[in-house]
């Protein structure tokens, strides 16, 4: 009996090792709550600009990819501890994040952020502004003198906060706010756009230089043949192309 268990264990171990030597799957981590970049469609699958982009990049880099959703708050800790290999979640390239993880080349131009509110004529300098926690928008509001930052775990809750009067305005990527402002009569853009961040890139572990090279090549090839621009025009109308 003992022998049987032992040999089964050895066989299982050997099988596991054999599997691991095949080309490993690259796991793509996203938030799934930030349309049009990434969201869950009616079928509950990841969809959006980054779904189309990620699938195309994986085809070009000849990688097998798998999509995983993770809370925005813990998206970087879970990358560095190896629960997935790439962050593809509308994450802007900033110096602070670059200290912890590495970024691929940007796949969007620096995208303007914008304010939305229920009415015009809000003194943005001295008001309560909602933003998603851990975003470049949240750090921007925190650096504004006079304005009070109200942080939420999901971008959707920042819109809910201006609707129920908790916040005077919300700051987020313009591409995220655009569909909301067009389909929701209550919500309008206010004030001027602000340019934050250095474009959006894939977040990759610092020790994964090879994977980063593969993705950089794939991004470059999509920039060269114009297919990246086609995707940007399809999903992020109004955003600058390459």
């Amino acid at each position: 009996m003992k022998k049987l268990i032992l040999s089964t264990a050895v066989a299982a171990l050997a099988a596991g090792t054999a599997f691991a030597q095949d080309d490993s799957t690259v796991r793509l981590g996203t938030e799934g709550a930030y349309p049009p970049y990434n969201f869950l469609n009616d079928a509950g699958e990841v969809d959006g600009f980054e779904r189309a982009l990620g699938d195309e990049l994986c085809t070009r880099a000849e990688l097998t990819c798998e999509w995983v959703t993770n809370d925005w708050d813990s998206i970087i800790p879970n990358l560095v501890s190896g629960n997935y290999d790439v962050i593809i979640a509308g994450m802007s390239i900033t110096d602070e994040r670059d200290e912890v993880i590495d970024f691929s080349d940007p796949y969007t131009q620096p995208d303007p952020s914008a304010y939305v509110a229920l009415s015009d004529g809000i003194d943005l300098e001295n008001s309560v502004i909602a933003a998603q926690a851990g975003t470049i928008q949240a750090s921007h509001v925190a650096s504004m003198e006079g304005a009070t930052l109200l942080e939420f775990a999901t971008p959707d809750e920042t819109i809910a906060a201006i609707k129920n009067g908790e916040a005077d305005a919300a700051l987020a990527d313009k591409a995220f706010l655009e569909p909301i402002a067009t389909s929701d009569a209550e919500v309008t853009f206010v004030g001027d756009d602000v340019l934050l961040g250095g474009g959006i890139g894939l977040g990759i572990r610092e020790s994964d230089a090879e994977l980063r090279e593969q993705f950089n090549e794939a991004i470059q090839s999509m920039k060269d043949d114009g297919s990246l621009n086609t995707l940007i025009e399809e999903w992020l109308p109004g955003s600058a192309t390459f």
């Binding site: 691991a20 095949d22 080309d23 798998e66 560095v80 190896g82 572990r205 020790s207």
Partner: peptide, 25 residues
């Protein structure tokens, strides 16, 4: 050859991943 802790990263060899990186979801 490498250490497991590389800066912020926790890197183990592909066979030691739990579950294996290429396991289904």
């Amino acid at each position: 050859p490498d250490t497991v802790r590389q800066g912020n990263d926790f890197v183990v060899c592909a066979q030691a991943k739990l579950p294996l990186g290429n396991s289904p979801q």
